[in-house]
């Protein structure tokens, strides 16, 4: 079950990222105000999605249970270096990029997704 849903989500989110990129490139009013930061953040997200999908659909199937074991070790402050998950290169790239994404969050426009819910109110109160 989780495999099917996760797989479908992986495809849908990749399509969404591609569409966002296409819109940014094709719609002049969006393209002309786009800066490097806007493209880079899209590329980062796309790279995370693609590496994720490679692990799921690629020829060398990656067992999700391995990540569970790896994060379990981290949670109890064990030594994660021997975890078998780390032997998979795609996983390393995928997780590395995800960490970069988390690092970027407070400094990039990704944080705005929360703002959309309350900025109108915040501005009106002034």
């Amino acid at each position: 079950m989780s495999g099917t849903v996760g797989g479908a989500a992986g495809v849908i989110i990749l399509a969404s990222a591609v569409l966002l990129g296409v819109r940014r490139l094709m719609v002049p009013r969006a393209r002309e105000i786009t800066g490097p930061a806007d493209y880079l953040i899209l590329l980062l997200i796309a790279a995370i999605i693609i590496t994720g999908n490679i692990m799921r659909f690629g020829p060398e199937h990656f067992d999700l249970a391995l990540t569970r074991a790896y994060f379990g070790t981290l949670a109890i402050f064990g030594n994660p270096l021997d975890a078998p998950a780390l032997e998979n290169r795609v996983f390393l790239v995928h997780m590395g990029l995800a960490l970069v994404l988390i690092l970027c969050l407070p400094f990039s426009k990704l944080l705005h997704f929360g703002g959309i819910l309350f900025t109108h109110q915040l501005i009106r109160r002034q």
């Binding site: 719609v27 705005h112 501005i123 002034q126």
Partner: peptide
Amino acid sequence: RAMRLYLEICAKCGTCATACPVYYGRA
């Protein structure tokens, strides 16, 4: 605070351009 918010946030979606009479006049 409102002005700081305007300068901090913007997702560059281009919606404002569709609402702008000047941009409508010449894109």
